[in-house]
Structure formats: structure tokens, C-alpha cells
Amino acid sequence: MVVYRSSAMGFAVQPSYAVDGRVIGGSQAAGFVACELPPGRHEVAVNNLPLSSNLFGQGSEKVSLDLRAGSTTYLSAQPQMGIVTPGAITLIQVTESQGRADVASLHQSNSSCGKA
């Protein structure tokens, strides 16, 4: 599984990514983190600031994935800038070919879960 951020927008906003509740690395502009995960269901979240999603909601955006053996799942982290959402990062699942192309020009960030 690879989580990447190709946009330099909001470069100062760097919340951490978590998989199944465990922090794996930070959201860096023009960077990605890669994790080897066993097949099955996993939850990936961005630990946004408490007020970044909305005034009363959770401080993270979450995506549930059903990972298959032999394939790589790519999540694009998209900065959402504005007055209501100051620096929230949302996750969007993209196709493997799109993710591979997007990640080719990015740098790999340190993660606590190994390489994909």
C-alpha cells in the first residue's frame, strides 16, 4: 500500500498517516510512504488537526481498504485548503497505473512499516 502526496499546495501541513490505528509516517508534499501489509481489510487515516475537517467532527479522514495479494493499492492524499477546512488532507484511492505514474517523480518518506 502506498500513500502519496503529489501536490506542493499546503506544504506546511504535514499530518501523520496511520494504518489500523498505528502511525506509519508523515504527509509530506511531493512525497510518499509505502507499507507492506498482509492481504485483507485495513483502515488508513490521516490525523488532521481536530478543527480541520469540521468544527465538531473527528480529526482524521479514513479509508477502508480490502487489500489483495500481489497488487499494490495507491491512495492520493489531497490537501483541502480554505477557511472551513484549514489544512485538511483527504485520501482518494486511485488506480494502480495512475498511482505508479504519480509516485515516479516523488521522494519516499521515512515510514515505520517497511517498503512496498
Rank of each mutant, 00 (worst) to 15 (best):
G59R: 07
L67D: 08
G31W: 15
L49H: 13
E36T: 15
P38H: 11
S60D: 07
G40D: 13
P38D: 12
S52Q: 14
V63K: 13
Q28R: 15
F32M: 04
P39K: 02
L67M: 04
S53C: 08
D66S: 09
A29H: 15
V63I: 02
V63M: 08
G57S: 05
A77T: 00
G40L: 10
L65Y: 13
G31H: 15
N48S: 04
N48G: 00
S60T: 04
P79D: 08
Q58V: 00
Q28P: 04
S71N: 10
S71H: 14
A45R: 11
C35P: 07
P38S: 14
S60V: 00
Q58R: 04
P50W: 02
V33Q: 00
P79A: 01
V63N: 09
E61F: 05
E36N: 15
L67Y: 12
R68M: 08
S76G: 02
F32E: 02
E36V: 11
L51M: 12
E43P: 10
V63A: 04
C35M: 11
L37A: 09
N48H: 03
S64T: 09
L37S: 12
L55W: 13
N47V: 01
P39E: 08
P79W: 10
G57R: 08
P50H: 05
T72H: 15
L51E: 07
N54Q: 11
S64G: 12
S52K: 10
D66R: 08
F56Y: 14
Y74R: 02
R41Q: 12
L37Q: 14
F56S: 03
K62R: 13
S60R: 11
A69N: 08
K62Q: 09
T73N: 14
L67Q: 07
Y74T: 00
A69M: 09
S76C: 01
S27P: 02
L49M: 11
P38W: 02
R41A: 06
N48Q: 02
G31F: 12
P38F: 03
